[in-house]
Amino acid sequence: MASATDILPRRNLGPGEQWGRQVEVIVRDEQRAADIDRQDIDGLGRAHASTLDDIARASARLKDALQAIPYPVVASDGSEDFTVSTGWTEVARVSLTAPPGKTLLNVIAFGRAFGRGLVETEVEVTTEEGMFVWPFPLGTVSDEWGDRPEGFHHGIDFAVAEGSNIRATADGTVSISQVWQGSTSNNQDGLGHYVRINHGTPPGGGPELWTGYAHMQSAPPVSAPQGVIQNETIGQVGSTGFSTGPHLHYETWEDGVRVNPREFMDRWEYTSSTTTETIIESADTHLSRLVIGGMTSREFRSTAGVHSPVWGVGMNTSSVIVSLQIRSQTTGIYGSHVDNAATLTVLGSFS
């Protein structure tokens, strides 16, 4: 907090030196009161109406004290709500005029404002669901799950080039790594070189899940109980076992029961979506200043959302316009949804 002497240097006060010295004492006391008010507002998070009452009472204290000085004084004040954007923005304005035939000698302004600066930041938020990806594009499907002349087909076939890498469709642990011995005498042998992976249960709970990959070109490069990650190569497309040409026969299980891979993927397919959200946070540091008759005070720093700039200057005019202005030191705004209020009290000595 600046000293009263910094705020009201005597060399700028002009006539009325005694009035100026007494003002310094009053301002110093008012600054202490402002500190107490600031703590109250921060600690209790007061609503808008209460905040406006606080700053009005603070202005009244200063005005009453100054008017008690035995020197002719005129006073004017005003208060209002405000919304502040980036840059210096006027939040209160007062016009002070000396009595007819009189001249303003000294002017002191006391601003009081409450408003939290806000910073708007756009962030990308990614939402992920499910576990599994398809082993190959659905456009390469050559045979679906279901009945066919040679028997029920417990999977989906992907007709892709021989030697194409087969990748695990989700993280898991290899439970079967079958090396084909050249026989097709039973269903298991008919799968040729074959890998089955146990993927456990979904993160949110559910059945235990498995996937199977059949008719590989050669002995699988993975073995049980090896862990694998999604998209890791677990073999190449071939035509071993009961097969009429190169393809991947893809199977899926839930709790040990084979299910249609399309229905399986309806429940467990991995999806990712990205949206842009606006995060609004309270800015830490803000500035305020007073403009008296076109002369601008130094900048007063506030870190609590409460501004209490006080400034006095020597004048030689019949009237003056005084303005209270606020600016955020960060890239951001003062949002209209924050309880903002301001008041400005201006007093002047005249002769």
Rank of each mutant, 00 (worst) to 15 (best):
A342G: 11
E277M: 13
D143Q: 15
A68I: 01
T127F: 02
R196H: 00
L287R: 04
V73D: 00
V107L: 02
S3P: 04
E80G: 10
S59C: 02
R258Q: 14
D42I: 05
Q39K: 11
T274W: 13
H247V: 12
E129V: 13
V123Y: 15
I55L: 08
A2M: 08
P207T: 04
G43V: 07
G172K: 14
S95G: 10
Q188G: 04
H337I: 13
E120C: 03
W88H: 08
I280F: 14
G139H: 04
R327P: 08
R167L: 12
P220V: 06
Y194K: 11
G182R: 01
H215F: 03
G294A: 13
E150P: 00
R32Q: 09
N260T: 11
L138I: 07
E232D: 10
S3C: 07
T271P: 09
I326H: 12
V73K: 07
T173R: 15
L96G: 05
V125Y: 11
P225C: 08
Q230L: 05
R46M: 03
E124L: 10
P100F: 09
V74F: 03
L8F: 09
H48K: 05
D40L: 12
D54V: 00
D53Y: 00
V91W: 06
A341V: 12
E269Q: 15
L105W: 06
V257T: 15
T275I: 15
S142E: 04
